[in-house]
């Protein structure tokens, strides 16, 4: 077997190195995590033809086939041409060449998303549609980026643990003339969210300051006195990460921004990365990239030429709270 394999080049091609010498795992992107079920046949065919017959659901919601021998990489790349074309070019509208060379880059990772409001009763936004719009902005780029999209503040897709986490929000509208004064929205808000509603003489008063934008009040209401805002809003969490060094939860960068603002902001990600990395697309987690720049520099570059909507709020500062892997201050050997 040829042992001269450029694994870094293969990784950029979305083939991950196996502990078995000469074997790789292909990762097919599923931006926003929803595709036609017919594409399962694509990964099944790859796994059974060139892989070891098994299928792995990627931790970033890719379709993975492990155990592909190096000599088959070109065949697999040729086979996935149609898949890449249909998903990236047709569904996401990306302007890229369709060829037999496989994925052009792994820089911007697959966009993770929950099922969102196309199915979920809690969802505020359509996560797949948003993911496809976002994919168009971040892929194909060699600059590293992990984006997760959650349909609501339950954050099942862990927007809190990625470079750029998006959470779908609503600012519910209250129609007092439809309110029966039952106070259920206030009870539910207190129980599952932040308790910003109060029943005062049979009508609701709201403390907008602490509203998380979940929309639980709307679905709790028996009489339709609450409605989701026609305008959809988003929260952006940045700098969350896992990993061996300093894992941490992301912190709030933007709150109550519209989709237009979100897209304008993400358009700046590549120039932000390029500026901080001096135009070299190094393999550096987004959180570390933000650390390298410093939050205020990050904010300046990411909000460049962005016109914020009136409701938008921007973090003045960020206090990171990292897991103290290095200090071990809270773990001790038990006393014998």
């Amino acid at each position: 077997m040829n042992h001269d394999i450029d694994v870094k080049k293969l990784r950029v091609n979305c083939f991950r190195q196996s502990k078995v010498a000469g074997e790789f795992m292909i990762q097919l992107r599923v931006p926003g995590s929803l595709i036609k079920a017919k594409y399962l046949a694509v990964i099944q065919h790859i796994a059974e033809t060139w892989g070891n017959g098994t299928f792995h659901i990627g931790t970033r919601q890719t379709l993975n086939a492990p155990g592909i021998k190096y000599k088959y990489v070109d065949e697999v790349n040729a086979y996935i041409q149609d898949y890449i074309k249909e998903i990236e070019i047709e569904a996401c509208g990306i302007d890229m060449e369709s060829n037999e060379a496989g994925y052009p880059t792994i820089g911007a990772r697959n966009i993770v998303a929950c099922i969102g409001n196309s199915h979920c009763i809690k969802g505020n936004v359509n996560t797949h549609e948003l993911a496809r719009k976002m994919e168009k902005e971040i892929f194909p780029s060699h600059y590293h980026m992990k984006m997760n999209i959650a349909g609501c503040p339950n954050d099942c897709s862990k927007a809190h643990f990625c470079d750029f986490g998006i959470i779908g929000l609503t600012i519910p509208e209250y129609m007092p003339e439809r309110c029966i004064g039952c106070g259920r929205c206030a009870t539910v808000c207190k129980k599952v969210a932040t308790g910003v509603l109060e029943l005062v003489n049979n009508k609701i008063e709201k403390d907008m300051c602490c509203c998380v934008g979940c929309g639980e009040c709307v679905s709790a209401c028996p009489s339709g006195a609450w409605a989701y805002s026609k305008q959809k809003f988003y929260r952006v969490m940045i700098g969350g990460r896992t990993g061996k060094q300093t894992p941490r939860m992301g912190k709030m960068f933007l709150n109550w921004v519209t989709e237009d603002v979100l897209i304008a902001v993400i358009k700046n990600w590549q120039s932000f990365s390029a500026t901080i990395l001096e135009n070299k697309p190094l393999y550096l987690h987004g959180g570390h990239l933000i650390d390298k720049a410093g939050y205020h520099r990050f904010r300046e570059l990411m909000l460049k030429d962005v016109k914020l909507n009136p409701e938008a709020m921007v973090a003045e500062r960020i206090f990171w709270t990292e897991t103290e892997y290095r200090s071990n201050i809270n773990v001790k050997k038990p006393i014998a």
Binding site: N117, I121, N124, S219, G224, A227, Y228
Partner: peptide, 15 residues
């Protein structure tokens, strides 16, 4: 029809 005034996001209410 009251667009988007249903119980769940992106659903309508007829009243």
């Amino acid at each position: 029809n009251f667009p988007l005034e249903g119980r769940y996001s992106d659903t309508d209410m007829v009243r």
